[in-house]
Design a protein around this nucleic acid. Sequence first.
DNA 1: TTGTAGGCGTTATCAT
DNA 2: ATGATAACGCCTACAA
Lengths: 354, 354
Amino acid sequence: MTKKSTIYEVAHRSGVSTATVSRVMGNGSGASEATRKRVLASARHLGWVPNGTARSLAVQRTGIVGLLFPELGSSADSESESPLFVDQVIRGAERAATLAGNAVLIAATHSAAGRELAWSLASKVDGLVILAGSLSDPELARISRSVPVVALATPSARQKLDCVDADNRDGAQQITRHLLDVHGYRDLAFIAGPEHSPDSDERFAGYRQALEDAGLTAPDVPDAHGGFTVAGGEQAMRELLDSRDSPPRAVVVGNDQMAIAALSVLRSRRLRVPADVAVTGFDDISAAQHLRPALTTVRQPMREIGEAAVRMVLDRLADPESTRRSLVLPTQVVARRSCGCRPAPATRARRTTS
Amino acid sequence: MTKKSTIYEVAHRSGVSTATVSRVMGNGSGASEATRKRVLASARHLGWVPNGTARSLAVQRTGIVGLLFPELGSSADSESESPLFVDQVIRGAERAATLAGNAVLIAATHSAAGRELAWSLASKVDGLVILAGSLSDPELARISRSVPVVALATPSARQKLDCVDADNRDGAQQITRHLLDVHGYRDLAFIAGPEHSPDSDERFAGYRQALEDAGLTAPDVPDAHGGFTVAGGEQAMRELLDSRDSPPRAVVVGNDQMAIAALSVLRSRRLRVPADVAVTGFDDISAAQHLRPALTTVRQPMREIGEAAVRMVLDRLADPESTRRSLVLPTQVVARRSCGCRPAPATRARRTTS
DNA sequence: TTGTAGGCGTTATCAT
DNA sequence: ATGATAACGCCTACAA
């Protein structure tokens, strides 16, 4: 409402220089108790608080870290998979930032406008955390030369940027081991995502590792490929089934969406889950717990990822020359019904870990 | 990495003044095609992009709107009620902001640090949208004198600030009418929230209205009060039951948490829901759809609220003198099992409206 | 302890 | 079509 007052007015009103006012507002020290009080008084009287922008310009630091994420599911309707992930990441980022006295500036790269938006963001923040899919690799590279960025779930950047990822490999290994050790299944199969997806590759690697650790012979390639999509998952599951005399005892699916599709294919073929064939997914999307049977899957610590990411940009800011870091956070299997586990006792049971 | 270059270097490198560079980057016009190209070229060469902070200082506008919300459920564990709401609001805000070429700065008022944080935020943004519970009323009032703010779900501010709220009254009226008209129940009861909660009052008013519209006589006061909490809901439901010979045919509960409690009380008394007594809630927290029976309730359009809120601060910015506005967004009943409706056909059915 | 004055990187007003 | 140059509001040596 009222024209904002400046440091000059406060200085004048309390009969000191702007330098003194600045000191009072800053260190708190560097001024006698008397003047200090006077300054504070007139500041309050004028309803003045230091202009953040001007201060940022002067100290060369905004106290803001930007968070760029891809806009998925158009607007309202499809509350698809990732939105939830993003929300978690945002919360984590907010938390870590606030803890360090910073704030988080968020922006989604809707459609094409992404490019411009990203740059506009970059010029307003101290650092950027960028979620996979927000920017093309070249853009990512270029923007990272203008401001510190840490890339999230972006394996393609792992060589050049600070990164934080979920441990896809270990997650797959864990869940496979669960199938092997806890349930004693031997005849497993793996449905992968897109052909050259790093995430999918990692998960398959984990699957193989678990198999080998159990003394079983691991296949060189996945039993089938779906595109991480429902449609792809359906087809993959069908192919898998058709390619064998009898269904595998358990199938490790590359992500939840495909697992959901797999479930419906199995049902249509009159195969019971988990009685006849066990199924697991990956991601722990919200639908997983609502399915019947509830889907056993691997949860990724999105919130922690968000926290770690902003901490990492803050660290980078503090020490620009330190070597590139790559953080990979642990994943966790969420055992539910589809693998053969029994539902947890409490009605609201949610996360039974293996 | 490389020291950021400035407008001066770009100007020098292309043999023009900073003014010209600024023009080229801004209007795009005001410069001959030749120089324009030269400037753009050296800008790209230097990897220069205008410093957002400096620009903000010069133009007196940051292009950022802040979003302040209360930190609820401590950190990780209790994914209580509101987090989801907040996430939706954030997404809505982000969307509206980006659409207008702005970005959203988010911050949660963890515990006590709220005060300071809020002010630090306020000095970095063009406007603020503040969720109920983030700040005390006095703080809200003071901060609103330093920067345009729109208050969300904060009835106490309705007289002095721009506001946006959900239509609590209409939601309650709708759901009551649903009970009355669709199911033909006549003997209803209402469990309210805290004694002097504006939200609760609104909902009760809607309840009464529906009753009167149906030619029934509406009570002057709620049949019982809970504190919007599970514990309060339990007690309220017990009191309600104990105060009568036979249970009401349907009970409209002030919010979902209390409704959940009511459900368990009814179960413990061997009363079936909805066969013996129907129950409805308010809010549509995520647990609502997981309950057995699934809870019929009223959904608030959090996403739209977020969108509307930032649009409102943007409007206010454009026209500081316009009169205060108060926007109330429609609510929607989500009919599930607890009111007597049948589950929707599809397995993934979610929102059947009355 | 306190004041002076230059600088932070752009934009915008006036001239030219 | 350009170029000086004064804001923008604050911080921070450097002096006093």
